[in-house]
């Protein structure tokens, strides 16, 4: 963590959940601000200038999608969404509106902190890939020379596979919805053709993962999208 502790805004109506989230974040060295409604959350996001917002989707006073849309009109600060498992399809809306990641309730302190660290690191880095050499597992990607090697041997990727890999690398640690990936890699006319994306992610796993059936880097967020993890 940096010298100035990060400020995290927790928008959550349930006191006991706020309590352990606050405890976990403070143990991590963050400062915590709390809001109990979405309306208050939006105001605090403007006045307190937090580094990260943790937003519960089950708040009684509103729709998370609107919250994120309003926020994105003037700010890029990262948003981590908390939601119940039964609402997979609400998550997609919020993520498409611009939220960065989500956690399914119930979640452990470890999971929460891992997501928070990843998001804070990303926002500190400004979302740019500063190093043109990327490593994960036994794979090395040279972005400048467009070369991928695994255990030192070159790996042949098609242009679309390579483009997909680049988008995933650039958003490492973040959930990307099917829609988002299809739009960025294939173009806007393909956003409903999710089978393309699934087949190509399968190709990347075949070529770059040790066990394609139990991937460690190209992770599936079932019903939502994919997440790349170093």
């Amino acid at each position: 963590m940096s010298a100035v502790p990060s400020l995290v805004l927790v928008v959550e109506d349930e006191q006991q959940i706020r309590r352990f989230v606050r405890a976990a974040l403070e143990a991590e060295g963050c400062r915590v601000a709390e809001a109990q409604t979405m309306a208050q959350g939006l105001v605090d996001a403007g006045t307190r200038k937090p580094d990260l917002i943790i937003l519960d989707l089950g708040l009684p006073d509103g729709d998370g999608t609107h919250f994120v849309q309003d926020l994105r009109a003037w700010s890029n600060l990262p948003v981590l969404v908390l939601s119940a498992r039964s609402t997979e399809y609400d998550k997609i809306g919020v993520l498409d509106a611009g939220a960065d990641d989500y956690l399914t309730k119930p979640f452990s302190v470890g999971e929460l902190l891992a997501r928070v660290r990843a998001l804070l690191r990303r926002s500190k880095a400004g979302g740019e890939i500063e190093n043109s050499m990327q490593h994960f597992g036994e794979v090395e990607v040279d972005l400048a020379r467009r070369q991928v090697t695994r255990r030192g041997a070159p790996v042949h990727l098609t242009p679309l596979e390579y483009r997909l890999l680049c988008v995933l690398l650039a958003n490492a640690g973040k959930v990307l919805t099917h829609r988002h990936l299809l739009r960025d890699v294939w173009g806007p006319s393909y956003v409903e053709s999710s089978h393309y994306l699934r087949v190509y992610v399968g190709h990347l796993r075949q070529k770059l993962e040790d066990d394609p059936a139990q991937p460690r880097h190209f992770l599936t967020e079932t019903g939502v999208g994919y997440r790349f993890q170093f």
């Binding site: 349930e14 352990f20 989230v21 309730k105 452990s108 302190v109």
Partner: peptide, 14 residues
């Protein structure tokens, strides 16, 4: 049901 369970799980984990 999930809200108190989330709190219970998170607090125990803490």
């Amino acid at each position: 049901v999930r809200t108190p369970l989330t709190a219970l799980y998170g607090l125990a984990d803490t």
